[in-house]
Design a protein around this nucleic acid. Structure first.
Length: 439
RNA sequence: GCGGCGUUAGCCUAGUGGUAAGGCCCUGGAAUGUGGAUCCAGUUAGAGCAGUUCAAUUCUGCUACGCCGCCCCA
């Protein structure tokens, strides 16, 4: 047995999994780029207050799921549990609130929560996200929802349900809470003990309780949507109308609320519908909404904000469940092997022009029979073997063997790139300009 | 964080208070120059630490990790 195990709730991404992450990141990031959301990257940890201030100091999320990593002299640090607050902090710290608005950001980062791990609930997990500051109208809400909906279409996720609701603006929420508080207090005795506690902490949460005792009461509760201010309702109706106009399927869910204090107006959640993910009322693959009070809460001006974040681990698992795209071929397409022993540098040298040309080339490090080398090449998924050191492959010749067609020909060393190119594709090569050009 | 159930080799799966079995994978050979077949051989295991016992992988406890339920879900 291994001497060490990974930390609880944190997992390794072996090459196949890491490749799936990379592929998804390319798709999401390119999409964000097309929408004018450039990438931002913030530190892995923040002053705890960044999260406590924005999430609500009393919420369980903040108080008990914070991943504390404080050290002597570093202040009270916590690994970030989410992306919105850190981006807001960076936005303010670098004075971007004084730049031309709106300001938009995309991120793809690991997040951390000190929760007990369960299926697809890790202590370290990855999220992509969008943040948009300075846009007050419904257009930005509609845009981030459309972005996400379109993303899921783009990657082929179909078993997903878009839910949305409005919870009112900052000035309205106290009214909403008061009205609900009054309603639930009158029926206090009928509520579960847990929800009786919620009466003190977060009345909204009672609305999405799963407890049957609460459901009976909550289902008869006044709708948040009907309690909010006229302006909030108008905003929400505009968002809904926008989705209609764009042909995006959605469901208005009365009980959809958020656990964090900073949300205002629009709240949105994309929930997986596959029964395999039905546990606990469904796993969200993306969630977000509007947070018009956040920037001010953090000491900045009264700037509106809206954003959405999606779980990468969850999305990849959902796609896999759906029997999503074929796994990418990870290994090399070409393998260099040799009938000779102790010609190590020659193998490296033979691979050189092929790699330069853009082929994925691996070496057989030798020390075994040609048969074993070929067997190994096939097992590793190589398409072509370039063989040196055989009698017919001396004097500036090599054998280029197609391992799929089982055909081969003796080729001049100078023509090996051309010959290999007849059997496998070159890969694109990235450049510092950020564009990929054909290699 | 609370409760329940789990953990046998790289993977999957048996079984047992007394020598831990099989399949797949892997390595080598048959076949020192041409591969996914075949045959032969081989490597690798009871999560960790204590306790009970003549003897523990098996029973008990603690710890670690996982899954399920709760809390919560940014």
């Amino acid at each position: 047995m291994p001497t060490f195990q990974g930390p609880r709730g944190m997992r390794d991404l072996l090459p196949a999994e890491a490749a799936a992450f990379d592929a998804l990141r390319r798709v999401v990031q390119a999409r964000a780029d097309r929408y004018g959301y450039p990438r931002i990257s913030t530190p892995i940890a923040e002053d705890k207050q960044v999260f406590l201030r924005t999430s609500g100091e009393t919420s369980d999320a903040a108080s008990k799921e914070m991943y504390d990593v404080s050290l002597h002299g570093t202040g009270d640090l916590a690994l970030r549990p989410e992306g919105t607050a850190p981006v807001a902090r960076a936005f303010l710290e670098h004075g971007l609130h004084k730049a031309a608005q709106p300001q938009r950001f995309f991120y793809w980062e690991p997040m951390f929560r000190g929760q007990r791990p369960q299926l697809l609930r890790y202590r370290q997990f990855w999220q992509w996200g969008l943040e948009c500051y300075g846009a007050e109208g419904p257009a930005a809400d509609i845009e981030i929802i459309e972005f996400t909906s379109g993303l899921f279409s783009e990657v082929g996720l179909t078993e997903v349900d878009l839910q949305l609701n409005t919870i009112g603006d900052g000035p309205c929420q106290p009214k909403v809470r008061a009205a609900l508080g009054e309603y639930f207090t009158e029926r206090r005795a009928e509520l579960s003990p847990e929800s009786q506690r919620r009466l003190e902490t977060n009345v909204l949460r009672i609305l999405d309780s799963k407890d049957p005792r609460d459901r009976a009461v909550a289902d008869g509760a006044p709708k948040v949507r009907d309690l909010v201010c006229d302006a909030d309702r108008a905003h929400f109706e505009a968002v809904v109308a926008g989705l209609e106009r764009l042909g995006i399927r959605y469901r208005v869910v009365d009980g959809l609320v958020r656990g964090l204090d900073y949300y205002t107006r629009t709240v949105v959640e994309f929930v997986l519908t596959d029964p395999a993910f039905a546990q606990g009322g469904g796993i969200a693959v993306a969630a977000g909404g509007r947070y018009d009070g956040l920037v001010r809460t953090m000491g900045g001006p009264d700037l509106p904000g809206v954003g959405i974040a999606g779980g990468v681990d969850v999305l990849i698992e959902a796609l896999r469940k759906q029997g999503g795209g074929a796994p990418r071929e990870l290994g090399a397409d070409v393998i260099v092997l040799s009938a000779e022993q102790n010609d190590d540098a020659d193998r490296v040298q033979l691979a050189l022009p092929l790699r330069e040309a853009g082929f994925r080339v691996a070496l057989d490090y030798g020390g075994r029979s040609l048969e074993k080398q070929l067997e190994s090449a096939v097992k590793h998924g190589a398409k072509v073997a370039v063989i040196r050191g055989t009698p017919e492959a001396r004097g500036g010749n090599v054998i280029v063997r197609d391992l799929v067609k089982k055909e081969q020909r003796v080729t001049r060393l100078a023509a090996v790139v051309t010959e290999v190119g007849r059997h496998v594709r070159k890969r694109t090569r990235p450049t510092l300009e950020g564009e990929e050009s054909a290699g």
